[in-house]
Design a protein around this nucleic acid. Structure first.
Lengths: 210, 210
DNA sequence: GTATAATCCAAGTAATTGCTTTGATTACTC
DNA sequence: GAGTAATCAAAGCAATTACTTGGATTATAC
C-alpha cells in the first residue's frame, strides 16, 4: 500500500472498444478473480494480476486506476453471474411448482452460492469495502424480489401478509444460514441438517397458501 | 507486508511479569484496539501502534512476534469483555424474569454489542483470520449457553424441545439480525422495528413455557 | 547495592507495492 | 495503406512496512 487513495475509485479508467482490448480487459478481471479466490485480498497485487493475465502492467493501468477498481469489477461480475443463475433457478422452481417450492428454492440458492464459495468468502470476510459497492448493495433487494415471485407463483401470497421487518428477518435467516453452511459450517451439525431445518422453519413461518 | 509469515503466529512472544512491563503490554494492546477501530485493519501498522502507545517499536517486538499477534490479543480482550457483560446481563434478565425475558435479553445483547460497534465491524468485515482465533470460535457456544440459561430460569425449557439444528438456526437469526442492525442497518426499516419483530419471532418460535 | 529485567534510542535493512515513463511494436479501422 | 488504438518491454521511483540491531539508560527484585 504505497499511496493512500483517499476517495476510493471503483470505476474503470476507460472501457475497451476493440475486440483485442476487450480480451485484455477480461483477462485482467479473470486473473484478479482467480488470485482473490486462491490467495485472498491482501496477497492479490496489481503486478501479480497483470502477470497472471499475461498482460503488461502498463496495460493494466491503462484500464484501471488501481487495484480496487479491478476488485470492484470482479465483484460486479460475480454478482451478475449469481443473480442470473438465481433468476434462472427461480423460473425452474416456479415451473416445477407445488409443495416443494420452498425447499427447491432454498436448495438452489445454496447450490448456486456454493459454486462461488472462495470468491464469496473473500468479499464477505476480507475486502474492506464490499458493502460500498453498488452492485453488491442491490443483491438483497433482488433476492427478495425473486423470492416473492417464487412464493407467489408457487401458490401463496407473501408480500401482503408479512411486514417489511418480517421479510427482512426471513431473508436474514435464509441468507445467514446458507452462508454459514458454505463458509463456516459449525462442527457437530451437518450442513444438510441445517438446510433441512431451515426449510421447515421457513415453511412454518410463511402464511399458509390457500 | 514485507515478509510473509507462513504459519500465522497469534500468541504473544513473552508474558510480562513486572508491573512496568504489564503496563507497556497493555498500552500496546489498547493502542492497537484504538487504531483498528479508527483506521481499520490495513491502516493499522506496528510502527503506528508503538507510536500511539508511547512505546518504542523495539519493545513491541519484545512482546509480540508481529502485528497479527497484537490484533489477536485485541480480539481476545474484546471477546472477554463482551462475554463478561453478557453474563452479567443474563443474570439481570433472569432476576427480572417474567414475560419479557426474551425481549430484555435480546435488547441487552444488542446494547452490549453496540458499544463495541467499530471494533466488531473490523473483525467481522476486515481481519482475514478472525474466524481462526480460538477465543472467537468459542463465542457462539457461550452465547448459546447463556441463552439457554436465561430461557430455563425465565420459565421454559429450551434445550429439550429444539433440535441442535433448530438451536443453530435460532441463534443464527438472532445474531445476524442484531449484527445487521448495528453494522449495516438496511434503509427503509428502522432497527427498532427489526428488533421488535425479532423478539416476536423468537417468542413465537420457542415452545411455550408452561 | 548489585544483578537482572525492561525500555529506549535511532538508525537501518530488506522486501514489497502501487504506479509511471518512454519508446518501440503490433493490431485494428476505414 | 495510412492513421489510430492497443500492447509491450523494461526500467525505475517513491513510499511503506515489518522487523532487527546493539548499545545506552532506567527501573525492579532480592
Amino acid at each position: 500500500m504505497a499511496t493512500v487513495r483517499q476517495p476510493l475509485d471503483f470505476s474503470p479508467r476507460k472501457r475497451p472498444s476493440q475486440r483485442r482490448s476487450r480480451e485484455t480487459f477480461d483477462a485482467l478481471v479473470e486473473a484478479c478473480a482467480g488470485l482473490l479466490a486462491r490467495r485472498g485480498y491482501a496477497e492479490t497485487t496489481t503486478n501479480h494480476i497483470a502477470e497472471r493475465a499475461g498482460v503488461n502492467i502498463a496495460s493494466l493501468y491503462e484500464y484501471f486506476p488501481g487495484k480496487d477498481a479491478i476488485v470492484a469489477q470482479v465483484a460486479e461480475r460475480l454478482v451478475e453471474r449469481v443473480l442470473a443463475r438465481l433468476a434462472e433457478a427461480a423460473d425452474e422452481v416456479m415451473a416445477a411448482g407445488g409443495e416443494d417450492a420452498v425447499r427447491l428454492w432454498i436448495e438452489r440458492i445454496h447450490e448456486i452460492v456454493s459454486r462461488e464459495r472462495e470468491l464469496v468468502a473473500v468479499f464477505v470476510y476480507q475486502v474492506p469495502y464490499t458493502r460500498e459497492l453498488a452492485p453488491v448493495e442491490a443483491v438483497g433487494a433482488r433476492l427478495l424480489e425473486l423470492s416473492q415471485e417464487v412464493r407467489r407463483r408457487a401458490g401463496g401470497t407473501l408480500a401482503r401478509e408479512l411486514s417489511d421487518a418480517g421479510l427482512h428477518l426471513l431473508i436474514n435467516l435464509v441468507t445467514s444460514t446458507i452462508l454459514q453452511c458454505i463458509l463456516d459450517p459449525p462442527p457437530g451439525v451437518a450442513p444438510r441438517e441445517l438446510l433441512d431445518e431451515l426449510v421447515r422453519r421457513v415453511e412454518a413461518w410463511l402464511p399458509r397458501p390457500r
